[in-house]
């Protein structure tokens, strides 16, 4: 009731891959949706637990810092297997997949990515118990970082 399109889209995404149904206007929507669907593999993602830290405004799309973390004990029986980073508006949406082990001690990583344009970044974490966590954050890009 009274929900905006934005909220319903988010809810749909949470239910797992249903983002497809709300195909936004982006050119390579299919590629990023396929990537998200492949990673989720039928599982339902939770919207808590995964921290995706990106700047809200990136002046230079060539170098956009990203911090990712999941609060996890990182023991042999309870750890984060992987975190996937997706930039849906980039020509190749999957930016990177980070793979952890219990020897990582902490499920956290930082890196720098290229962004072609303003977009909502998606991160998906896969846990050892088969749980999946998802987080999203918008980055406004002043100068694009692909092509040219």
């Amino acid at each position: 009731m009274g929900e905006t399109g934005q909220i319903s889209r988010r809810n749909l995404l949470v239910t797992g891959g249903a983002l497809l149904a709300f195909g936004p206007t982006r050119a390579d929507a299919a590629a990023s949706d396929a990537e998200i669907t492949r990673i989720l593999a039928g599982r339902t993602a939770k919207v808590t637990g995964l921290t995706l830290d990106v700047p809200s405004i990136a002046e230079n799309g060539l170098v956009v810092p990203v911090n990712l973390s999941v609060a996890s004990p990182m023991t042999a029986t309870d750890y984060v297997r992987a975190i996937h980073l997706i930039a849906p508006e980039n020509p190749i949406p999957l930016v990177a997949s980070f793979r952890f082990t219990p020897a990582s001690g902490r499920a956290a990583t930082s890196m720098r990515m290229r962004l072609a344009q303003t977009q909502t970044i998606v991160a998906i974490a896969e846990l050892s118990n088969n749980d999946v966590l998802i987080a999203q954050a918008e980055v406004k890009v002043t100068i694009g970082g692909c092509g040219g």
């Binding site: 060539l62 190749i92 930016v95 930082s110 692909c146």
Partner: peptide
């Protein structure tokens, strides 16, 4: 670390030039 995997990353073309990567190890 001492022959055991700690961390790895699959990088795609959206990773910036001169790639920086930080992570943790116990």
């Amino acid at each position: 670390f001492n022959g055991h995997p700690v961390f790895s990353a699959d990088w795609n073309p959206s990773v910036s030039a001169n790639p920086y990567q930080s992570f943790f190890a116990k």
